[in-house]
Amino acid sequence: AEWCAPGAAPAAMEAREPLQELRGALRAVLARVREGEPGEGREPFELPRFWDALGQTFKVTSQEATKLSLAFSRPPPTSAEDCRKLSEDVQNAILAVATVYYWLPKGQGTTLRKMVRDATTEVVEGMIQLTETILSTPLESLSQEQLVSTGGVWEACEQVSNLPQGEYNQAAVVSVLAACLGVVKDALEEMEHALVEGQDPYSDIMEDEELGFRGNRDTYWSEADRKLLSSCMGLMKASKACLKKVLGVVKAYGKADSPEQIAQLDDLADIAKEISPSVDELALSMYPPMNQLSVRLHVNTQEAFLMNFLHFCRTSHVCPPSEEGWVQFLSGAVDHNMNKIKNFTQGQL
């Protein structure tokens, strides 16, 4: 609800009406960006021109956010006319951001388009948040919330410099693969650390005089668990190697000269985005108390993603004959670890 001081002057409240209209307009833009699809422009698409325009619109939006925030941070009260002008400038800046986003044709690839859409959405959401914060705080007072909201718009606008501005969809896919590889590396390192730290503290005591054989497996891995873990770790390492090698060939051979090449890169990015969370889920299932059936189910999922990933890579333009050797090697590594895991968990099915 908008803040209304007791006895607030009608003129002061009237000055905020354009902000309410602005909020509605920004919400409409946000809905269109989220739901709409960029069209195919009539003019030839030029990527450098697109990035320049996007960067410029984000910069202008950041400046307009600053002006809007300052206008409502100190006396004297902003007039209705000034507020309307500020609101129009903000709306025009946001419309310019959305317009440039719509320049990006579908043919440039879904990975790149999603990144730009997410960045655009974040900027619009930030501006909506700032507008709502100003509307809900006392007149001409700079609240902590308003400072945070203003900073949020600045941060969102600065994200454009972090977008992969290389050759069309190829740079975007490289960015996705690198992020997925980072997630898998982290999961692997955490599990390696847990294995070192997770020794049974009472492993040297084979039998407790009063309780009999120790049956509590809630806090440590049994010897049988550790045998299974070794092969699961092998599968996680294969996942890391797959992502690393595919990232390398996409950097080296990835092209976006045809719709087919762009689609192939998108497929690799989509599967990579399935691999990294599935590695995380596999790792979580491996902690004690271990349920071997649960581990087996997660392993099967991981195997399917990896084999699919390697297949897509091998049949795409990023894998010339000179690169097929490592694809076969990693397929063999996945099979090897899977066979061992199947043997260890045979009784669980």
Results as ranks from 00 to 15, higher is better:
Glu64Asp: 09
Gln91Glu: 12
Trp103Glu: 06
Ala98Cys: 07
Gln91Cys: 12
Glu64Ile: 09
Pro105Lys: 01
Glu81Tyr: 11
Leu70Phe: 13
Glu64Leu: 12
Ser79Met: 08
Gln91Met: 09
Ser62Ala: 11
Leu70Ser: 01
Glu88Trp: 05
Ala65Ser: 15
Val100Tyr: 08
Pro105Trp: 00
Arg34Asn: 15
Pro75Lys: 07
Ser79His: 12
Gly41Pro: 15
Leu30Thr: 11
Glu64Met: 14
Leu54Tyr: 06
Glu43Asn: 03
Gly39Thr: 12
Asp82Ala: 14
Glu37Arg: 07
Leu54Lys: 03
Ala71His: 11
Gly24Tyr: 10
Val29Gln: 02
Ser73Leu: 04
Ala28Ile: 02
Glu40Ala: 02
Pro76Val: 14
Ala71Asp: 04
Ala80Tyr: 04
Val97Trp: 03
Phe58Cys: 14
Thr66Pro: 06
Glu40Ile: 01
Ala98Ser: 15
Thr57Tyr: 08
Lys59Pro: 08
Ala25Pro: 10
Leu26Lys: 09
Tyr102Lys: 07
Glu40Phe: 08
Phe58Val: 10
Pro48Glu: 10
Pro38Ser: 10
Arg42Cys: 00
Arg34Ala: 14
Lys67Gln: 12
Ala53Lys: 02
Ala93Pro: 05
Pro44Arg: 13
Ser87Cys: 10
Leu26Phe: 08
Asn92Thr: 14
Ser69Phe: 00
Glu40Leu: 03
Thr61Pro: 06
Thr57Cys: 14
Arg32Cys: 07
Glu88Asp: 13
Glu37Val: 15
Arg49Gln: 14
Gly41His: 12
Ile94Lys: 05
Trp51Ala: 06
Val90Glu: 09
Thr78His: 01
Ala53His: 01
Gln108Lys: 13
Phe50Tyr: 15
Ala28Pro: 02
Gly36Tyr: 02
Leu47Trp: 09
Gly39Phe: 05
Trp103Pro: 03
Thr99Glu: 04
Ser69Val: 04
Leu95Gln: 11
Pro48His: 02
Gly24Phe: 11
Gly24Thr: 04
Glu37Leu: 12
Arg74Ser: 13
Pro105Glu: 01
Asp52Cys: 12
Thr99Met: 08
Ser62Phe: 04
Thr66Cys: 06
Phe72Gly: 00
Leu104Cys: 08
Gly107Leu: 10
Glu35Ser: 14
Gly55Ala: 09
Gly107Met: 10
Val33Tyr: 04
Tyr102Ile: 07
Lys59Arg: 15
Pro76Trp: 05
Gln56Thr: 06
Leu30Met: 11
Asn92Leu: 03
